[in-house]
Amino acid sequence: MQPEQADLSQVLTDDDVLRFLSRNPEFFVNNQDILPRLRIPHETGSAVSLIERQVSVLRGKCGTLENSLRDLIGVARENESLHQRLHVLIQEIISARNLNKIVDLTRASLQQNFNADDVHLLLFCTEPKKPAVRKRTSAVSAAKSATKAAPRVRTQKPIEGTQIVPHDDSALELFSELFANAETICGLPSEEQLSSLVGQDHSDVASAALIPLQHERPLGVIILTSRDESRFASGKGVMFLNHLGQLLSRRLATYGTILPVTVA
């Protein structure tokens, strides 16, 4: 409390308030917002006045509405801040030059902005293209072609927190419902799904969010895990996660060939 406030409370008396109200009879008309906070007894003996009861109920509702409004304002500010951070992330993902950078940006942002303890990705290799049918060549041309060095097959280096599996891997069946719904699912995944995404050591996962990545075909799955069972409980809002999943799906679809990981 500031010194001037302490002095004022000591000097101001009931008579001072009465004189002020007498000189300003329109005070409560001009300041009606203070009325619900005042306690004005209505003498009715041992019975409770209906008016007093109504005022008490209205005061309680007013307090509840004020708290709700305060909470809504807080959520709106948090969502606005999150929207701005995701906007920056989207710009960085669009301009990322390689798959490693895309994954690193995504994992770091999800851990920071959604309070995830860990983030894992499961990506499906790009389906190999069918070889083009070539016309029959002469024996001389075939001999020249045979002497050329065979092209070196590129492979994708390992990426932290990411698995890259064949495009027809059995994991597709595990997440068929996720791809069918085409939206983020919160809750606790099955043992098989957790093992596929996180590995065998997943006993500390209490809740998770699964984000499908697909554009014309399944591209992969992102999982956000938490040791808090309420963090990604079923029924949580997933609007921002859905938007991010859709953006990532488009980026991966236009990225190019996703190759298998190099095995050391």
Results as ranks from 00 to 15, higher is better:
L72G: 04
L188K: 13
H202D: 01
I258P: 04
I73Q: 15
N242Q: 00
T137Q: 15
D16C: 09
A116K: 02
A171E: 10
V165H: 07
V103K: 00
A146K: 09
R231D: 06
F175H: 05
Q214E: 13
D169R: 05
V165C: 08
A253S: 09
A47W: 08
Q54F: 02
R85Y: 09
T126N: 05
P212Y: 06
T155S: 09
D117F: 07
G237H: 13
S138C: 08
G60A: 09
H167P: 00
L99V: 04
T126Y: 01
A108V: 11
N115G: 03
L72I: 10
S170Q: 07
A208E: 03
A108L: 09
I40F: 11
L121K: 03
L122R: 06
A209R: 02
L248K: 02
G63Y: 11
K61E: 15
V88E: 14
V119S: 01
Q214L: 06
L82F: 07
E78C: 05
H243S: 11
A180C: 08
D228G: 05
D117A: 05
L69R: 10
D16I: 07
V11Q: 14
V29K: 15
I185E: 10
D228P: 01
S109G: 03
L213C: 03
F28E: 07
K61Q: 15
F20N: 01
A264M: 09
I94Q: 04
L35S: 05
P3L: 14
L188T: 10
V140Y: 12
S145L: 10
L213Y: 00
A132S: 14
L21M: 09
L21H: 11
L197V: 03
F232H: 02
P158C: 05
R53H: 14
L58A: 09
N24V: 02
G45K: 06
L65C: 01
A139R: 13
L241K: 03
G220F: 06
E127I: 12
N100Y: 14
D7L: 13
L241Y: 01
L12C: 11
A206T: 00
E160C: 13
L72W: 12
I73A: 13
L122H: 07
V57T: 12
S49T: 02
E4Q: 12
Q10H: 14
R231P: 00
S190Y: 03
G256P: 04
H120Q: 15
R231C: 05
T137A: 13
Q5P: 00
I94G: 01
E177L: 15
R107L: 05
F179E: 02
P260E: 08
L18V: 11
F114T: 05
P3Y: 10
A206W: 03
S170H: 11
L210I: 04
S81I: 08
S176C: 05
A150R: 15
R227A: 08
A171D: 14
S207T: 00
E229H: 07
R250C: 13
R136I: 11
S176Y: 10
C186P: 00
R251S: 08
L99K: 04
R97L: 14
I102P: 04
T162M: 11
I90H: 12
T147C: 07
K129Y: 09
R59W: 01
S56K: 11
L50K: 10
